[in-house]
Design a protein around this nucleic acid. Structure first.
Lengths: 260, 260
DNA sequence: CGAGGCATTGATCTCAGTCAACCAGCGTGG
DNA sequence: CCACGCTGGTTGACTGAGATCAATGCCTCG
């Protein structure tokens, strides 16, 4: 049975303003101190004193519509991109055409570190919904933080986190069963919602089944079926892109079912 | 037909010396300037002037036997570990026991960056053969490089590379076919041998079939069978752990056969 | 010599990919 | 207003790749 009354997709007032066509200037100044995701983002554990070097960068934000790219594979590496609000996907081009989703990103995450090695970005980041991006000029960030003792480890910490993310991503991908992968994916989303103060039990998927499938190395049909099977087993309810987790331990169990 | 006359496993004179029991001191001083993998390692593109801060660290090496661990999940993060010679595997523990291989590392690679985020290592690194590890005290490295303009980007560059590696690893893992994954794995090994001045066509696998399988998210039987099928198709010859690639384009073709 | 680790090989079964049909919602345009 | 096509999602039937279980061979080590 197909989903019936589809719930309204929530939309932040911010995004509504953007959509109204009162075209906000492409770039607007912003401050970490007043940013609602500052605790998750770059300034993470910094004291307000240590924030100074960041504020001195006079950061600007850019608004992107859903579907627009933030930066592309091949772009020169100039900025780090902090996601103030919204959701993005990161993709790489496959050798023979087609794209592979390598990650989904939520507010407070910093994107673009992939450009560090070669001064050129190696991934394409696309907004999945209207989003606000904070542009952090990398060179100036390095210069600014080098001077401030408390901010020195900022970059290392940031990259360390990224490495950990990739690590766990790899572990997930080497799970063989579709159910394990999808469970891992959903549990991960749930955690990230929780750490942003949203409900870990109920949330909207910002991405299509095809995108989830690409990310998990599955087909979209398998994603669809596995979601249904979770629903049948009472782990969650799915209505289109709206997910309500009803038995998180059940999900966890199907995550680490198979050993390998 | 099972392999017949198994070739002798090559062993570097270095390793032989270790094995002879003339127990070299556990730690010995070493210098980047005289290290044969320095061009691949941390000092990468540094000029000899910029090498100074590294030499001032008075690095030491440790020798580990095959099977011994270099560092473990949970160990405090103090050092980066540069592999002077030998091969290692990195593993993480699965939630329900068992281990998952997350990477193989060759001479010139720097390990341990996974500890950066939380000051604690998140992986276990084990030597696959007798190896030489160069211990780089992280704090002191940061202090030493901060002062030297040319060496400033060392860490960022290093981490950037690591991120790229993980990225491509993820792409590989999201390939569905066993043959694609194994081909990608072999081609990657081949390239890394080449960049170290060894033959890209002929090399020894330092790891077991089970370890390859764990890394690729396959079973060891599938690895074995797929190798055989490559052999049948004339892409390579396998004798135990000795691999000779005879048709690298054939391998490449089976790498990007399936699109997804 | 036997035990144990590693690899190969075979037989069987199952899970997930493939192909295809179908449905709902949505925007377009007559 | 309805017809139309398009996108995104679900569902079904079928098939094949790869997991699983099991037996065997080779090599090394004690």
């Amino acid at each position: 049975m197909p989903p019936t009354a589809t719930l309204d997709r929530p939309s932040s007032p911010l995004n509504a303003a953007v959509r109204d066509g009162k075209a906000a200037p492409a770039r607007a100044p912003c401050k970490c101190a007043t940013c609602c995701v500052s605790t998750l983002c770059l300034p993470g554990g910094l004291s307000s004193d240590d924030l100074q070097p960041l504020e001195s960068l006079a950061l600007t934000t850019r608004r992107v519509r859903g579907g627009e790219t933030v930066f592309q594979d091949g772009d020169p590496f100039r900025y780090l991109y902090a996601l103030r609000s919204g959701t993005c996907k990161a993709t790489v081009a496959r050798p023979n055409g087609g794209e592979q989703v390598t990650g989904f990103h939520m507010a407070g995450e910093v994107l673009g570190l992939d450009g560090l090695a070669c001064d050129v970005h190696g991934t394409t980041v696309t907004a999945l919904e209207d989003s606000e991006i904070c542009l952090i000029p990398y060179r100036r960030l390095v210069a600014a933080t080098a001077a401030t003792p408390g901010a020195k480890d900022l970059m290392s910490h940031l990259m360390g986190q990224e490495l950990l993310r990739d690590q766990s991503m790899m572990v997930m991908l080497s799970l063989t069963e579709a159910a394990s992968r999808l469970a891992a994916f959903l549990l991960n989303l749930s955690e990230r919602h929780a750490s942003r103060g949203y409900s870990p039990r109920e949330f909207w998927l910002r991405m299509s089944r095809a995108e989830i499938a690409s990310f998990l190395g599955l087909t979209l049909e398998t994603v669809s079926r596995t979601l249904k099977s979770f629903q049948r087993r009472g782990f969650l309810r799915v209505d289109g892109r709206h997910v309500t987790i009803t038995d998180i331990d059940g999900l966890r169990a199907s995550y680490d079912l198979r050993i390998r």
